[in-house]
């Protein structure tokens, strides 16, 4: 079924089997492998992407349903030249990850939070990532990363979540 997908600002029309999840379309159809499969039943959050700015589990919507929506994945946060955006850099600063598998989803969940809340407290951060399971870190360094990113965004005149550290 012909589907118009806008991913990371680029619009493409591709043929999508109606039963295919958005997750599989991103990975297998578009080669965007930063979005990971974890449970494939909407619990772990590893496949989180941004749909019109909201954190959404890409294993729970079909590719054809994404027609016309604005989808962002972790690949869209950077320009591909080795620079990191402010949230990604904060995750590196606090080591808010280990194996990296849940990290894409965590970073996008953080973006979804920081878009609507510039100064989240710890409880709000924990709530925002509570749908994303991490088995490595125990979450603490992730919470610290998001606190750090929020602070850096607040104290920066130029950078917003999603923009790139020069």
């Amino acid at each position: 079924m012909k589907t118009e997908l806008t991913v990371n600002g680029q619009t493409r029309v591709i043929d999508v089997e109606p039963r295919t999840t958005l997750l599989d379309v991103l990975r297998d159809g578009l080669g965007l492998t930063a979005t990971h499969a974890g449970c494939e039943h909407g619990v772990c959050g590893a496949c989180t992407v941004l749909v019109d700015g909201e954190a959404v589990r890409s294993c729970l919507i079909l590719g054809v349903q994404a027609d016309g929506l604005d989808i962002r994945t972790v690949e869209g946060l950077t320009s591909g030249d080795g620079a990191l955006d402010i949230v990604q850099d904060a995750f590196c600063e606090t080591h808010g990850l280990q194996c990296g598998y849940c990290t894409s989803g965590m970073i996008l969940a953080a973006h979804a939070l920081l878009r609507v809340n510039a100064a989240p407290d710890e409880e709000e951060i924990r709530e925002a990532i509570s749908g994303n399971i991490c088995r490595c870190t125990g979450y603490q360094q992730i919470v610290e990363a998001i606190q750090l990113a929020a602070e850096r965004i607040r104290t920066s005149n130029t950078l917003k979540a999603g923009e790139v550290v020069k």
């Binding site: 990975r27 946060l77 995750f91 590196c92 990296g100």
Partner: peptide, 19 residues
């Protein structure tokens, strides 16, 4: 010091077997 592996993972550039 920062953990060097973190850079590729936050960029979604890890190389997992399913990738």
């Amino acid at each position: 010091r920062r953990v060097r592996e973190d850079r590729r993972f936050v960029a979604g550039a890890g190389r997992y077997v399913a990738d």
